[in-house]
């Protein structure tokens, strides 16, 4: 298939950046989207042009490294997948595809399609962990009773790979789906309850300081999330936060 690509090019954080048009030909519908980008980059390198910078790592939907806002949606038009799992068969011959970086004040562009997602790291460092004594006397986690329902809900929340599609899709650039998943995965487990109040207070404080917007419950994040993280987590975080701040 032959495609027209309109791709955001930006030399560095200070550069203004612009959309640049590229043509690619003979793209196989079996290629992944990132393989199509590789083909384009090989063409650019052959022409002595600077290849397009984009994030990727595992290329199997696990690491959360790939991003890309494709035709107005994070990770493209398919549901429940990351960009690396998006295949060219989703598009038609002759299509024009817009490819942009995540857009949020808290995710500044480093180069081309790569954004700095360290804001998520700082939120995690503010409380997204449990303090476990690893001296060798650690209690076996299986010895602690926990309901099957809570174990499942915690596991569902822990499926978040921190890619940032929630922020990218949200009209307010809100990070609440990400933060609520990280809060929930611990709040639901006995091991996480001890630090639950400090965790939610500190993570929300850091989230606000990073400059993410406010959640208005549009639900776009849930739809675009490659891991299907539920809005229930945001409601849980709101409850946890109110409990930690008022009671």
């Amino acid at each position: 298939m032959n495609l027209t690509l309109k791709i955001w090019r930006q030399k560095g954080p200070q550069d203004k950046g612009q959309m640049v048009e590229y043509k690619v030909t003979d793209i196989s519908e079996h290629m992944s989207f990132l393989e199509m980008m590789d083909v384009l980059n090989e063409q650019l390198v052959a022409k002595d042009e600077v290849p397009i910078a984009f994030d990727h790592d595992c290329r199997e939907g696990i690491c959360g490294m790939c991003s890309l806002h494709i035709n107005g949606e994070p990770h493209g038009p398919d549901r429940g997948i990351t960009t690396c799992q998006l295949h060219m068969r989703t598009f038609k011959d002759g299509d024009t595809i817009y490819i942009e970086p995540w857009r949020a004040k808290a995710f500044p562009v480093i180069k081309d399609l790569i954004v700095d997602r360290m804001a998520f790291e700082r939120i995690q460092q503010a409380g997204g962990y449990i303090s476990v004594n690893t001296s060798g006397n650690t209690q076996d986690a299986n010895a602690i009773p926990i309901s099957k329902l809570n174990a499942d809900l915690s596991m569902d929340a822990a499926a978040c790979i921190g890619c940032g599609a929630c922020v990218a899709s949200c009209k307010n650039s809100s990070a609440m789906l990400f933060v609520s998943a990280k809060v929930s995965q611990f709040a639901l487990l006995p091991q996480g309850k001890i630090e639950a109040a400090d965790r939610v207070r500190n993570m929300v404080k850091q989230m606000d300081e990073e400059g993410f917007g406010n959640c208005t419950n549009t639900g776009a994040c849930e739809v675009e999330c490659p891991k299907g993280i539920s809005l229930e987590n945001i409601a849980r975080m709101n409850r946890e936060y109110l409990k930690a701040s008022i009671i």
Binding site: R103, S169, S173, G211, T218, G219
Partner: peptide, 29 residues
């Protein structure tokens, strides 16, 4: 909140398909 939210995305998308994932009502409160 609306002003704060607008400021949270200082560079707009060239193409943003909001209708794909959220209702008109929720996006235009």
């Amino acid at each position: 909140l609306e002003l704060k939210n607008k400021k949270s995305r200082n560079v707009k998308y060239v193409k943003y398909n909001g209708a794909a994932s959220a209702s008109w009502m929720s996006r235009n409160m």
